[in-house]
Every structure is written in structure tokens, then in C-alpha cells.
Design a protein around this nucleic acid. Sequence first.
RNA 1: GAGCCUGUAGCUCAACGGCAGAGCGCUACACUGUGGCUGUAGAUGUUGAGGGUUCGAAACCCUUCAGGCUCCCCA
Length: 427
Amino acid sequence: MVSKIQSVKGTREFYPEQMALRNFIYDKVRAASRSFGYQEWDAPFIESIDLYAAKSGEELVKKQSFTFTDRSGDFVTLRPELTPSLARMIVAKQGELTFPVRWWSFGPFWRYEQPQKGRGREFFQWNIDMLGVSSPEADAELIAVGATFLRSVGLSPQLATIYVNNRRLMDSQFDALDIAVEKRMDVSNLVDRRSKMEPAKWDAYAFELGLNESQLVGLKDILANFDLWKKSDELVRLFAALESLGVKDYVKFDPNIMRGLLYYTGTVFEAFDTSGSLKRAILGGGRYDNLLADVGGQPLPAVGFAMGDMVIGIILQEKGLLPEFIPSPAPILMTIFDESLMQESFSLSAELRNAGLNVLCYPEPAKLQKQFKFADKMKARVVLTLGPDEAANAQVTVKNLVNGEQVTVTRESVFEVIQKILAGVIS
RNA sequence: GAGCCUGUAGCUCAACGGCAGAGCGCUACACUGUGGCUGUAGAUGUUGAGGGUUCGAAACCCUUCAGGCUCCCCA
């Protein structure tokens, strides 16, 4: 008895309908990236574990990466993130690249996590970065790319918001409370967890981390102050640029946005669906000015963000923002009337393909009813029939499945008639 | 890595420890040159897998796999 082999935990199978969703996201990602002039690139899918050991979090490297030894005994990792590969590739050609570099990528990543809604072990991720510019206006451009994407998939500012904060601003606020530099990580973590903990427990946790009463009160004041951005020149400039770029209605300052990652140095941001059930970020990123120097390059400022395909995919499905799924990429079905007319029908389909049309040919003679039903299932818009009557007069019958109208025309004019029908359907 | 919930037809779900069912979908026919809509008929299946308790298990117990909700983490 052969037992069924199921797919690996946390992976997804892409049947044509799911593939259409993935391609929809890819198309929108590509369009948003290209509209700002970003170049597409990619890195290897497998990398040495050492690449991540240098700068990624310990959690990521030790617990959440797919790592194995290859046949020669070397440790290799299925990439859990792209930024270290980006840093290496930039450093390798730092002397010959034209800056600012604007690059984007969309590809697969793997993390050994507990699968949940919106989170799997194999997923696709959009990464987009600008390197070589340290201005808040560069930060604004990346946020604008994200907002442009959200708008392009039908997520209005009412449905999705990009929350912005700034690490330097928060650090200065922490300094003002006499919170030691060594404690910043802990306090960031504390801020991150606030929404998940009961207030009393959160207070207790704060004291546990060594904050005193006045520091806790001060921290709460900071986190409740949504005008704090006015104290940051960077954020004032950022919001001015966002206004000019036409995306300010997507963006809100929020001092509670921290982001766990160690390497962020300035502006950080995260986009959320404001109305949905999913509490996960759609996209997130920020400025990381020290990373390239840390991995051995010349100092180079950088800003970027990443977006996984799972959360956005679920949101788009839940909100009904996906286009209708059309099973067949060919809008035209050529029927096969009977054995004797099969070759002629194949020839006609070939002629139409040569003329640039996508044509789905029924593969064998069958009842017309069956073939029309098939056309309907495939959501074809035009069905061609070449029966004895048509063959005798060098004609073809063309049926418009959208409005049910049918005409019999000469073979020479079929192409034109079909084009008119397809054009009419679109408009 | 930890806790809790769930798993029955292709899909969504019923079935008190006592004959495995419904809706949708699917197939055929009504209609021997025409889809959708309608009507009629038909097939749905190792109840996730393995073991145990019981006269009898989809149900109870154990193990395991998968999904979901938390913790963790979110690069």
C-alpha cells in the first residue's frame, strides 16, 4: 500500500487559481516599483549560513532557517531574508555602481516557523531598497512606493494605513528620560508588546526591566503623543515630501511602531489593514544606514521595505479586490465538429494564432453541447464552429458567449469579426 | 520550542456510542449543430493516518500528521 505523500508543512500548492493571485500581486508589485524607476534584481535562493550569522537576529539563524549540509559538508541555508544578500552584492560592486541604486525583487523565502493564517514556511516577498541617499525624502519615496502599491490593488487610505516612526527620535526621547543606551533594546521590545499585554502586566514588565516610576510615566506620555513627530526635523521633512508625492493620506505618525530589527537607524514604518481581521503587517521597513559598513563595505546609507505575499493575498481575497479568475488564457474556443472536419479546424486555429490570437482548440470530436459547456467553464468569450455547412461555403460560425449572438461569416473575415467582439467585450 | 481548538464527499457543513447525510459543485440525459437558466437521474467516502476501549466508534482514549488561535518571533 503506497501511502499518500502530502506537501511539506507550511508550504502552499499553487493551482492555477492561486497562481493567478500570485501573479496578480507580482504584476502590481512590478508596476509600482517600475513607476518609480526601480530596477529588478535577484540573489541566490541558497546561501551560506555565515551570511546571516553576521547581522541577522539569532532567532532567525538558529531557529528559523532551513539549514542543511550539502554533499561536501558545507552548511547552506534556504534564504530567510534578502537584505544580507543585497548588502554583499552592493559591497562587491560598490566602486562601479551608479548611485543612488534603486532595486526591487520578488521571490521565494523560507523560514521554519509555526504556520498560521498569513504565515507559512515558504512564501514570496517583495523587497525594495534605495541605497546611497540618507535624506528623509528618500524615506518618503519608499513609503510612496508602498502607498502606490496599496492604491493599485484597491486598498484606499480608509482600508490601509502606513504607520511611521523614527528610531533617532525615540532614542532622543529615551535619553530625555535617562534610559540607558544599553536598555534601548529592552524598551523597544517593551513598546512592541504593549498592545498584547494587559496594562497592569505591562507596567510590571517595565519595572522588571529596570524602569522607575517616573520613567514609566514618561514613556507612556511619549507613546500617547501623536504630535511627537514635530520635534523631529527628519519627520517634518518626511511628511512634507509625502504631501508633495501625493500619498500623505496613507501615512500616520505612531510612536508605538518600533520594529524588532537591530539594523534600523532612522525612519521605520509598517502598513496595516485598518478594518480586517488580520493583525499582521502588510509591509514593513525603514532606514538602515550602518549595515553596509558593518558587512565590510564603505559606509552607505540605505532605506527599504519588504512585503510578504501571504498577508496581502488574504486581505485582497477577504475584501473582494481580486479580478475574476479566468481559467483559460485563450478567449477563443475552436470546436471540432467531427472527425472529417478536425484537420480543417486545427488549421483555422493555427491561422488565428499566427495572427496573434490565443486560441483554445477542443482536442477531439465531441457533441457541440459538450464543447460549448467546456467553453463556458473556461470562461471563453468566443466559440468558433466549422461544420459541414460552413465548410461547404468557406465559412465559420462565430458565437459571442457574452451576449449569445451568433453570426456565420467567411473565413477571410473571421479574424476581424473576432477582434471586434473581443474589443466590444473589453469596453 | 509551549498551550488550546479543529480535521466527515471536490467545497461548506450535519449525523445522542447504534443504517454516513444535506446544500453547492461534478457526470449523464431532457436537446442527434450550441454554453449559462431550468428539470430529471447518477456517482460521491479507508469519517486525516495508526492503535486501543466497546456487542457496536466519525464520535470516547492514546500516538501521529495537517490546519487554526495564542505565546515566541516578525528579518
